[in-house]
């Protein structure tokens, strides 16, 4: 298979991300697909810090930093402002964390999608508030340790299921919705290309492993990203023209293969891992059913 990833680098050296940061790979691939004629909005999140200190920037695209809850509204403003001047050829995108998307920014996201602006909202999902030091978000998965779900003597890990924003966007009938992850860069690139070709609102949720937040060796980011898909913990799917398409991995693995590499799940007993396996299997089945219907 020929490589489909554009050569052009719009994310440059000199950024300030941690070693092995999955969110930097997400940005790098997304910008390759979006192209230089882009305008990006970044709310408060790790990515508000990663491009570097004023006046330097590691990104070769114009970007506006916004308040935490404002990604959705900001891309709406960018789009309409550019269109009002005949600059319809810009790709307008948000690049926001899971907290800024699933929690404080959910209203703004939902409204921007509902209004139908020609924008792409990218949620890089590292499954917690990492910029503030690993606090639980709505997108943190069941079972995870975070500093606000600290396990403790009462086994107070995250007891609630992950709020999957991509599913909310599907429920809202957003024209194009996809999940992706950096371990499958060509799949990610393809999805960005499709999003770019559609005039209207688009949403892509990219699982972006985080070594310091998930407690794993920073060399394992790509491996963990792949395992998330192969264990069906983070299924890859696309929703377009009202149809759901689920990617079925050639080989599948038990969730323990994914969980055991990460310190954030180290406290889980065997029976608790079984619970996770059950929930993952149930969600997978229900996805397949939705795909059929």
């Amino acid at each position: 298979m020929p490589l489909t990833i554009p050569r052009e680098e719009l994310m440059l050296q000199g950024h300030t991300a941690c070693a092995g940061c999955g969110a930097t790979l997400s940005m790098r691939y997304v910008l390759k697909g979006a192209g230089e004629k882009s305008a990006v909005a970044i709310p408060a999140c790790c990515w508000a810090v990663i491009p570097g200190e004023f006046p330097y920037t590691a990104l070769k695209v114009p970007l506006i930093y916004t308040t935490f809850a404002s990604a959705g509204a900001s891309i709406s403003g960018l789009r309409e402002g550019l269109d009002a001047q005949g600059k319809e050829d810009y790709t307008v995108l948000a690049f926001a964390g899971d907290g800024g998307t699933a929690d404080i920014g959910l209203q703004g996201l939902s409204a921007a999608m509902e209004r139908g602006h020609n924008v792409l909202y990218v949620m890089y999902d590292n499954e917690a508030y990492m910029n503030t030091g690993i606090q639980r978000s709505g997108s943190t998965p069941y079972g995870a340790w975070t500093t606000t779900t600290p396990v403790g003597s009462k086994r107070d890990y995250k007891r609630e299921n992950k709020k999957v924003v991509a599913d909310l966007m599907i429920a809202q009938n957003v024209p194009y919705v996809a999940t992706a992850t950096i371990g499958f860069p060509e799949d990610l690139e393809r999805k960005v290309a499709i999003a770019k070709s559609i005039k209207g609102p688009k949403f892509i949720q990219i699982l972006s492993p985080c070594p310091p937040g998930w407690y794993y060796n920073s060399a394992d980011t790509v491996k963990i990203s792949k395992l998330a898909v192969e264990t069906k913990v983070f299924p890859l799917y696309e929703y377009r023209d009202g149809k759901l398409k689920v990617y079925k991995p050639a080989k599948t693995l038990p969730v323990s293969e994914y969980l055991s590499l990460q310190g954030r799940f180290a406290h889980l007993r065997e029976d608790e891992v079984e619970e996770v396996q059950k929930a993952v299997d149930e969600r997978w089945e229900s996805l397949l059913k939705k795909e059929q219907s």
Binding site: S76, E80, A84, A111, R115
Partner: peptide, 27 residues
């Protein structure tokens, strides 16, 4: 001759006009 964004809140109203103004469009 203007674009009209029917935002869902005042927080978003202000965020959106900051962004549109920064593109060079009087907002």
């Amino acid at each position: 001759d203007a674009k009209y964004i029917e935002v869902e809140s005042e927080h978003s109203a202000m965020a959106s006009v900051i962004a549109s103004e920064l593109t060079g469009a009087r907002s």
